[in-house]
Design a binder for these strands. Structure first.
Ligand SMILES: [Mn+2]
Ligand SMILES: [Mn+2]
Ligand SMILES: [Zn+2]
Ligand SMILES: [Zn+2]
Lengths: 152, 152
DNA sequence: ATGCAAATGCAAGGCAGTTGCATTTGGCGA
DNA sequence: TCGCCAAATGCAACTGCCTTGCATTTGCAT
Protein backbone atom coordinates (compact mmCIF):
# COMPACT_ATOMS: atom_id res chain seq x y z
CA UNK A 1 0.00 0.00 0.00
CA UNK A 2 1.18 3.49 -0.88
CA UNK A 3 1.22 6.47 1.38
CA UNK A 4 -2.43 6.25 2.10
CA UNK A 5 -0.89 4.66 5.14
CA UNK A 6 -0.61 7.88 7.04
CA UNK A 7 -2.18 6.31 10.08
CA UNK A 8 -0.72 2.86 9.85
CA UNK A 9 1.06 2.96 13.16
CA UNK A 10 -1.94 4.36 14.96
CA UNK A 11 -4.19 1.69 13.54
CA UNK A 12 -1.79 -1.15 14.22
CA UNK A 13 -1.36 0.12 17.75
CA UNK A 14 -5.09 -0.44 18.13
CA UNK A 15 -4.78 -3.92 16.72
CA UNK A 16 -6.62 -3.27 13.48
CA UNK A 17 -5.48 -3.23 9.90
CA UNK A 18 -4.45 -0.14 8.02
CA UNK A 19 -6.68 0.18 4.99
CA UNK A 20 -7.42 2.76 2.35
CA UNK A 21 -10.83 3.55 3.79
CA UNK A 22 -9.72 3.78 7.38
CA UNK A 23 -6.94 6.13 6.45
CA UNK A 24 -9.27 8.25 4.36
CA UNK A 25 -11.83 8.46 7.15
CA UNK A 26 -9.26 9.41 9.74
CA UNK A 27 -7.84 12.03 7.41
CA UNK A 28 -11.28 13.45 6.74
CA UNK A 29 -12.14 13.55 10.42
CA UNK A 30 -8.90 15.36 11.08
CA UNK A 31 -9.90 18.05 8.60
CA UNK A 32 -13.37 18.42 10.11
CA UNK A 33 -13.84 21.19 12.57
CA UNK A 34 -17.09 19.77 13.93
CA UNK A 35 -18.77 16.43 14.44
CA UNK A 36 -20.10 14.93 11.22
CA UNK A 37 -22.85 12.49 10.39
CA UNK A 38 -21.91 9.24 8.74
CA UNK A 39 -23.65 10.39 5.61
CA UNK A 40 -21.79 13.69 5.45
CA UNK A 41 -18.54 11.77 5.69
CA UNK A 42 -19.77 9.25 3.14
CA UNK A 43 -20.60 11.93 0.59
CA UNK A 44 -17.32 13.73 1.04
CA UNK A 45 -15.40 10.50 0.75
CA UNK A 46 -17.14 9.66 -2.49
CA UNK A 47 -16.36 13.09 -3.88
CA UNK A 48 -12.75 13.37 -2.96
CA UNK A 49 -11.50 9.83 -2.91
CA UNK A 50 -12.60 6.48 -4.11
CA UNK A 51 -15.78 4.49 -4.00
CA UNK A 52 -16.84 3.38 -0.58
CA UNK A 53 -20.01 1.86 0.79
CA UNK A 54 -22.08 3.55 3.47
CA UNK A 55 -22.03 0.40 5.56
CA UNK A 56 -18.25 0.51 5.54
CA UNK A 57 -18.38 4.06 6.83
CA UNK A 58 -20.62 3.01 9.68
CA UNK A 59 -18.58 -0.06 10.49
CA UNK A 60 -15.36 1.91 10.41
CA UNK A 61 -16.72 4.64 12.63
CA UNK A 62 -18.08 2.11 15.09
CA UNK A 63 -14.74 0.36 15.15
CA UNK A 64 -12.98 3.66 15.79
CA UNK A 65 -15.45 4.52 18.51
CA UNK A 66 -14.87 1.22 20.24
CA UNK A 67 -11.15 1.99 20.21
CA UNK A 68 -11.86 5.47 21.50
CA UNK A 69 -10.32 6.99 18.41
CA UNK A 70 -13.56 8.77 17.65
CA UNK A 71 -16.34 10.09 19.84
CA UNK A 72 -19.89 9.28 18.91
CA UNK A 73 -22.67 11.59 20.00
CA UNK A 74 -26.13 12.60 18.91
CA UNK A 75 -27.29 15.76 17.25
CA UNK A 76 -29.56 17.76 19.51
CA UNK A 77 -32.37 18.43 17.08
CA UNK A 78 -32.82 15.16 15.21
CA UNK A 79 -30.84 12.67 17.25
CA UNK A 80 -28.73 11.63 14.28
CA UNK A 81 -25.36 10.12 15.15
CA UNK A 82 -22.34 12.41 15.00
CA UNK A 83 -18.70 11.40 14.84
CA UNK A 84 -15.61 13.38 15.63
CA UNK A 85 -11.98 12.60 16.19
CA UNK A 86 -11.05 12.08 19.81
CA UNK A 87 -8.35 14.62 20.44
CA UNK A 88 -8.34 13.67 24.11
CA UNK A 89 -8.96 17.23 24.96
CA UNK A 90 -12.00 17.97 26.98
CA UNK A 91 -14.33 20.26 25.11
CA UNK A 92 -17.99 20.85 24.43
CA UNK A 93 -20.05 22.57 21.78
CA UNK A 94 -22.70 25.15 22.15
CA UNK A 95 -25.36 25.45 19.51
CA UNK A 96 -27.01 28.68 18.50
CA UNK A 97 -30.64 27.81 17.86
CA UNK A 98 -30.94 31.00 15.85
CA UNK A 99 -28.34 30.44 13.14
CA UNK A 100 -27.43 26.81 13.97
CA UNK A 101 -23.81 27.78 14.34
CA UNK A 102 -21.69 25.49 16.49
CA UNK A 103 -19.13 26.99 18.82
CA UNK A 104 -16.49 25.00 20.66
CA UNK A 105 -15.81 25.78 24.27
CA UNK A 106 -13.18 24.39 26.53
CA UNK A 107 -15.11 25.10 29.68
CA UNK A 108 -16.55 22.11 31.48
CA UNK A 109 -18.46 22.36 34.71
CA UNK A 110 -18.42 18.68 35.65
CA UNK A 111 -15.32 18.70 37.81
CA UNK A 112 -16.90 19.87 41.02
CA UNK A 113 -19.99 17.76 40.47
CA UNK A 114 -17.76 14.72 40.23
CA UNK A 115 -16.55 15.20 43.76
CA UNK A 116 -19.99 16.16 45.02
CA UNK A 117 -21.55 12.95 43.76
CA UNK A 118 -18.66 10.92 45.01
CA UNK A 119 -19.26 12.23 48.51
CA UNK A 120 -23.05 12.31 48.45
CA UNK A 121 -23.90 8.95 46.94
CA UNK A 122 -20.59 7.23 46.27
CA UNK A 123 -21.02 7.41 42.51
CA UNK A 124 -17.93 7.38 40.28
CA UNK A 125 -18.44 9.46 37.16
CA UNK A 126 -16.56 8.07 34.19
CA UNK A 127 -18.02 10.26 31.47
CA UNK A 128 -20.67 12.69 30.48
CA UNK A 129 -22.39 14.28 27.52
CA UNK A 130 -23.22 17.94 27.63
CA UNK A 131 -25.01 19.91 24.98
CA UNK A 132 -25.71 23.57 25.47
CA UNK A 133 -27.84 25.77 23.31
CA UNK A 134 -29.01 29.33 23.21
CA UNK A 135 -28.46 32.47 21.21
CA UNK A 136 -25.18 33.78 19.93
CA UNK A 137 -24.18 37.41 19.82
CA UNK A 138 -25.52 37.90 16.32
CA UNK A 139 -28.85 36.25 17.02
CA UNK A 140 -29.81 38.10 20.17
CA UNK A 141 -32.06 40.33 18.12
CA UNK A 142 -34.44 37.44 17.53
CA UNK A 143 -37.01 36.81 20.19
CA UNK A 144 -36.82 33.69 22.29
CA UNK A 145 -39.43 31.13 21.32
CA UNK A 146 -42.19 30.80 23.92
CA UNK A 147 -41.79 28.30 26.70
CA UNK A 148 -39.40 27.43 29.42
CA UNK A 149 -36.07 26.43 27.91
CA UNK A 150 -34.30 25.99 31.16
CA UNK A 151 -35.58 22.70 32.37
CA UNK A 152 -33.65 20.34 30.18
CA UNK B 1 -66.60 12.24 28.87
CA UNK B 2 -66.29 10.71 32.34
CA UNK B 3 -63.57 11.32 34.85
CA UNK B 4 -60.87 10.34 32.47
CA UNK B 5 -60.80 14.10 32.23
CA UNK B 6 -58.37 14.52 35.05
CA UNK B 7 -56.24 16.87 33.01
CA UNK B 8 -58.98 18.68 31.12
CA UNK B 9 -58.14 22.13 32.40
CA UNK B 10 -54.44 21.70 31.79
CA UNK B 11 -55.05 20.53 28.24
CA UNK B 12 -57.55 23.24 27.44
CA UNK B 13 -55.18 25.81 28.83
CA UNK B 14 -52.75 24.63 26.17
CA UNK B 15 -55.42 24.97 23.52
CA UNK B 16 -55.83 21.26 22.82
CA UNK B 17 -58.67 18.87 23.42
CA UNK B 18 -59.00 16.65 26.43
CA UNK B 19 -59.18 13.09 25.20
CA UNK B 20 -59.06 9.64 26.70
CA UNK B 21 -55.59 8.97 25.33
CA UNK B 22 -54.10 12.28 26.34
CA UNK B 23 -55.37 11.88 29.85
CA UNK B 24 -54.10 8.33 30.03
CA UNK B 25 -50.66 9.33 28.79
CA UNK B 26 -50.37 12.22 31.20
CA UNK B 27 -51.45 9.98 34.04
CA UNK B 28 -48.94 7.34 33.08
CA UNK B 29 -46.16 9.87 32.80
CA UNK B 30 -47.04 11.16 36.22
CA UNK B 31 -46.64 7.67 37.64
CA UNK B 32 -43.30 7.18 35.91
CA UNK B 33 -40.25 7.85 37.95
CA UNK B 34 -37.98 8.00 34.92
CA UNK B 35 -38.08 8.97 31.27
CA UNK B 36 -39.82 6.37 29.12
CA UNK B 37 -39.61 5.41 25.49
CA UNK B 38 -42.72 5.76 23.38
CA UNK B 39 -42.91 2.01 23.12
CA UNK B 40 -42.68 1.45 26.87
CA UNK B 41 -45.56 3.84 27.31
CA UNK B 42 -47.43 2.21 24.46
CA UNK B 43 -47.14 -1.25 25.98
CA UNK B 44 -48.20 -0.10 29.42
CA UNK B 45 -51.14 1.79 27.98
CA UNK B 46 -52.31 -1.29 26.14
CA UNK B 47 -52.04 -3.39 29.26
CA UNK B 48 -53.76 -1.15 31.70
CA UNK B 49 -56.19 0.82 29.62
CA UNK B 50 -57.73 0.65 26.23
CA UNK B 51 -56.48 0.07 22.74
CA UNK B 52 -54.27 2.78 21.39
CA UNK B 53 -52.09 3.05 18.33
CA UNK B 54 -48.37 3.63 18.54
CA UNK B 55 -48.61 6.54 16.14
CA UNK B 56 -51.07 8.19 18.51
CA UNK B 57 -48.57 7.81 21.31
CA UNK B 58 -45.89 9.49 19.23
CA UNK B 59 -48.19 12.24 18.07
CA UNK B 60 -49.44 12.88 21.56
CA UNK B 61 -45.96 12.99 23.02
CA UNK B 62 -44.79 15.35 20.30
CA UNK B 63 -47.76 17.58 20.93
CA UNK B 64 -47.02 17.61 24.64
CA UNK B 65 -43.37 18.36 23.96
CA UNK B 66 -44.28 21.29 21.75
CA UNK B 67 -46.39 22.64 24.61
CA UNK B 68 -43.52 22.04 27.01
CA UNK B 69 -45.65 19.64 29.01
CA UNK B 70 -43.15 16.89 28.45
CA UNK B 71 -39.41 16.88 27.94
CA UNK B 72 -37.99 14.83 25.11
CA UNK B 73 -34.45 13.56 25.36
CA UNK B 74 -32.35 10.71 24.02
CA UNK B 75 -31.13 7.62 25.75
CA UNK B 76 -27.37 7.59 26.12
CA UNK B 77 -26.65 4.13 24.80
CA UNK B 78 -28.97 3.71 21.82
CA UNK B 79 -30.18 7.24 21.17
CA UNK B 80 -33.82 6.21 21.44
CA UNK B 81 -36.23 9.03 22.32
CA UNK B 82 -37.26 9.37 25.93
CA UNK B 83 -40.21 11.30 27.30
CA UNK B 84 -40.87 12.55 30.80
CA UNK B 85 -43.28 14.95 32.38
CA UNK B 86 -41.96 18.48 32.69
CA UNK B 87 -42.15 19.20 36.37
CA UNK B 88 -40.38 22.48 35.80
CA UNK B 89 -37.81 21.43 38.28
CA UNK B 90 -34.27 21.35 37.18
CA UNK B 91 -32.83 17.88 37.48
CA UNK B 92 -30.58 15.43 35.72
CA UNK B 93 -30.07 11.71 35.69
CA UNK B 94 -26.95 9.73 36.13
CA UNK B 95 -26.69 6.30 34.60
CA UNK B 96 -24.75 3.43 36.09
CA UNK B 97 -23.19 1.63 33.15
CA UNK B 98 -22.75 -1.40 35.38
CA UNK B 99 -26.36 -2.12 36.37
CA UNK B 100 -28.10 0.41 34.11
CA UNK B 101 -29.78 1.96 37.09
CA UNK B 102 -30.88 5.58 36.69
CA UNK B 103 -30.44 7.98 39.56
CA UNK B 104 -31.95 11.44 39.69
CA UNK B 105 -29.85 14.31 40.93
CA UNK B 106 -30.84 17.85 41.55
CA UNK B 107 -27.34 19.18 41.14
CA UNK B 108 -26.68 21.15 37.99
CA UNK B 109 -23.37 22.75 37.24
CA UNK B 110 -24.49 25.01 34.43
CA UNK B 111 -25.18 28.12 36.43
CA UNK B 112 -21.65 29.45 36.59
CA UNK B 113 -20.95 28.47 33.01
CA UNK B 114 -23.91 30.56 31.93
CA UNK B 115 -22.31 33.71 33.25
CA UNK B 116 -18.89 32.74 32.01
CA UNK B 117 -20.09 32.34 28.45
CA UNK B 118 -22.13 35.48 28.67
CA UNK B 119 -19.01 37.43 29.55
CA UNK B 120 -16.55 35.63 27.33
CA UNK B 121 -18.42 35.41 24.04
CA UNK B 122 -21.78 37.09 24.63
CA UNK B 123 -23.71 33.84 24.31
CA UNK B 124 -27.08 33.49 26.01
CA UNK B 125 -27.72 29.96 27.18
CA UNK B 126 -31.40 29.02 27.04
CA UNK B 127 -31.10 25.33 27.74
CA UNK B 128 -28.87 22.33 28.00
CA UNK B 129 -28.84 18.57 28.05
CA UNK B 130 -26.57 16.79 30.44
CA UNK B 131 -26.13 13.05 30.75
CA UNK B 132 -23.71 11.63 33.23
CA UNK B 133 -22.62 8.07 33.55
CA UNK B 134 -20.30 6.00 35.64
CA UNK B 135 -20.45 3.37 38.36
CA UNK B 136 -22.77 3.30 41.33
CA UNK B 137 -21.83 2.19 44.78
CA UNK B 138 -22.88 -1.39 44.16
CA UNK B 139 -21.04 -1.67 40.87
CA UNK B 140 -17.66 -0.34 41.93
CA UNK B 141 -16.42 -3.89 42.24
CA UNK B 142 -16.57 -4.27 38.46
CA UNK B 143 -13.53 -3.13 36.59
CA UNK B 144 -13.77 -0.07 34.38
CA UNK B 145 -13.79 -0.95 30.70
CA UNK B 146 -10.54 0.00 28.98
CA UNK B 147 -10.24 3.41 27.40
CA UNK B 148 -10.59 7.01 28.30
CA UNK B 149 -14.14 7.72 29.41
CA UNK B 150 -13.56 11.25 30.34
CA UNK B 151 -13.53 12.97 27.00
CA UNK B 152 -17.20 13.06 26.24
C1' DA C 1 4.25 -16.12 -3.19
C1' DT C 2 0.75 -18.33 -0.16
C1' DG C 3 -2.82 -18.53 3.19
C1' DC C 4 -6.01 -16.86 6.19
C1' DA C 5 -8.42 -13.68 9.05
C1' DA C 6 -10.03 -9.16 8.65
C1' DA C 7 -12.17 -5.77 5.86
C1' DT C 8 -15.33 -4.49 2.31
C1' DG C 9 -19.27 -4.28 -1.13
C1' DC C 10 -23.66 -5.33 -1.99
C1' DA C 11 -28.26 -6.12 -1.01
C1' DA C 12 -31.61 -7.18 2.15
C1' DG C 13 -33.43 -6.34 6.51
C1' DG C 14 -34.66 -4.14 11.11
C1' DC C 15 -36.59 -0.75 13.69
C1' DA C 16 -37.86 3.95 15.41
C1' DG C 17 -40.53 7.28 13.97
C1' DT C 18 -43.61 9.63 10.27
C1' DT C 19 -47.34 10.40 7.14
C1' DG C 20 -51.70 10.12 4.27
C1' DC C 21 -56.15 9.23 4.54
C1' DA C 22 -60.57 7.48 6.15
C1' DT C 23 -63.13 7.37 10.42
C1' DT C 24 -64.31 8.83 14.99
C1' DT C 25 -64.80 12.07 18.63
C1' DG C 26 -64.70 16.27 21.59
C1' DG C 27 -66.62 20.53 22.34
C1' DC C 28 -69.25 24.27 20.90
C1' DG C 29 -73.07 26.77 19.11
C1' DA C 30 -77.76 26.56 17.65
C1' DT D 1 -79.93 18.05 23.34
C1' DC D 2 -78.64 17.83 18.72
C1' DG D 3 -75.85 18.44 14.87
C1' DC D 4 -71.71 20.19 13.12
C1' DC D 5 -66.84 20.43 12.11
C1' DA D 6 -62.15 20.75 13.24
C1' DA D 7 -59.22 18.02 15.85
C1' DA D 8 -57.85 13.53 17.18
C1' DT D 9 -57.23 8.74 16.15
C1' DG D 10 -56.57 4.12 13.79
C1' DC D 11 -54.62 1.86 10.31
C1' DA D 12 -51.27 0.81 7.11
C1' DA D 13 -47.83 2.13 4.25
C1' DC D 14 -43.69 4.40 4.15
C1' DT D 15 -39.16 6.84 5.22
C1' DG D 16 -34.62 7.12 6.86
C1' DC D 17 -30.92 5.65 9.78
C1' DC D 18 -28.47 2.10 10.64
C1' DT D 19 -27.38 -3.06 10.78
C1' DT D 20 -26.46 -7.63 9.09
C1' DG D 21 -25.52 -11.88 6.22
C1' DC D 22 -22.83 -13.42 2.87
C1' DA D 23 -19.70 -13.57 -1.04
C1' DT D 24 -15.48 -11.36 -2.44
C1' DT D 25 -11.32 -8.82 -1.77
C1' DT D 26 -7.37 -7.30 0.74
C1' DG D 27 -3.79 -6.63 4.37
C1' DC D 28 -0.16 -8.73 6.25
C1' DA D 29 2.30 -12.45 8.67
C1' DT D 30 4.85 -16.36 7.38
MN1 LIG E 1 -17.41 17.99 29.98
MN1 LIG F 1 -28.91 21.24 34.12
ZN1 LIG G 1 -26.69 32.56 16.15
ZN1 LIG H 1 -24.65 0.18 39.20
Amino acid sequence: MDENSKYKELLNREGIKSTRHRNAILELLEESEFPQTAEQLFITLREKTASIDLSTVYRTLDTFASKNLVIKSNRVDDGKALYELNHNEHKHHILCVGCHKLISIEDCPIGELKQTLKNKIDFDITGHKLEIYGYCHDCKKYKLPPGNHDNL
